[in-house]
């Protein structure tokens, strides 16, 4: 049974169809990149998987159960969610921000039991945050803040993790580090679905790529099968090819030649 699944999901906003009979699954142990041009429905697909977006038709399942039948706490224990917009309203400490990841277990910043504390410590270690734990989140650089949000999501210890553009606005090294953290999470048995715009990065790190356009799946499979030059051209209108470099293959893209 899949950790998360959308079956023939349709989401409409007014007359516009955002998701058009979309099928999407996430299994334990895989790192899936959800890619596609701007406005293709990636964020909506994640929100639909979480039950935050009502479906016009189709079903969203978490651990085989319809999301509408799950309370917010039950749902949060199954799926951790790292949304695209990540405001920090108050100058709380890094440690307190990560501790909010334990919200669904009753532990938040008001007080943590040993299990909560262990999860928070582990997540902070995974994101290399021990040195920052007393700092106010409002004083951090973009790269540091991205790690705090990642640690907060990991602290939930949920079987599934959905991350919406966790690498946005990060320099290449920090992008790579964030993807490595996600890859380790998948390797340790978690299912991770991540929205990214850097196809080369996605191809290098992820075990599976789902390419969507106009709310429909255009391709779904291993990086080289999904991100063929034809598929990339159809989705984005750019030219792409795979370059063989010793043992590894890299994806290279450029603007379409007219």
């Amino acid at each position: 049974m899949s950790l998360l699944a959308l079956h023939q999901a349709v989401v409409q906003r007014g007359k516009r169809v955002i998701l058009d009979h979309l099928d999407l699954t996430l299994e334990a142990g895989e790192l899936v990149a959800l890619v596609g041009p701007n406005g293709s429905g990636k964020t909506t697909a994640l929100r639909a998987l979480l039950g935050l977006m009502p479906l016009a038709s189709g079903t969203a399942l978490i651990g085989g159960a319809d999301v509408r039948s799950l309370g917010p706490i039950t749902r949060a224990r199954q799926v951790a969610y790292l949304p695209q917009s990540r405001p920090m309203a108050w100058p709380i400490s890094v440690q307190d921000a990560v501790a909010l990841g334990r919200f669904a277990y009753g532990g938040a910043s008001q007080g943590l039991n040993t299990e909560d504390q262990a999860a928070v410590d582990q997540a902070m270690a995974a994101c290399d945050l021990e040195a920052l734990k007393g700092r106010a989140v409002t004083d951090l650089s973009g790269g540091e803040l991205a790690r705090v949000h990642m640690a907060r999501a990991l602290a939930a210890n949920a079987p599934a993790l959905l991350a919406d553009e966790p690498t946005a606005a990060l320099d290449p090294l920090h992008q790579w580090q964030v993807m490595q953290v996600l890859a380790r999470q998948a390797k340790s048995g978690g299912g991770v679905m991540v929205v990214v715009h850097d196809l080369a990065l996605a191809a290098a790190v992820c075990s599976r790529i789902v390419l969507i356009k106009d709310g429909k799946v255009l391709a779904n499979g291993k990086p080289e099968q999904a991100l063929t030059p034809d598929n990339i051209g159809a989705a984005y209108g750019v030219v792409a090819h795979w370059h063989q470099d010793g043992q590894t293959r890299h994806l290279i893209m450029g603007p379409a030649l007219r």
Partner: peptide, 11 residues
């Protein structure tokens, strides 16, 4: 503190 979308996701 983390915004409505994240808080919703937290349960």
């Amino acid at each position: 503190t983390l915004g409505e979308e994240t808080a919703h996701g937290l349960g």
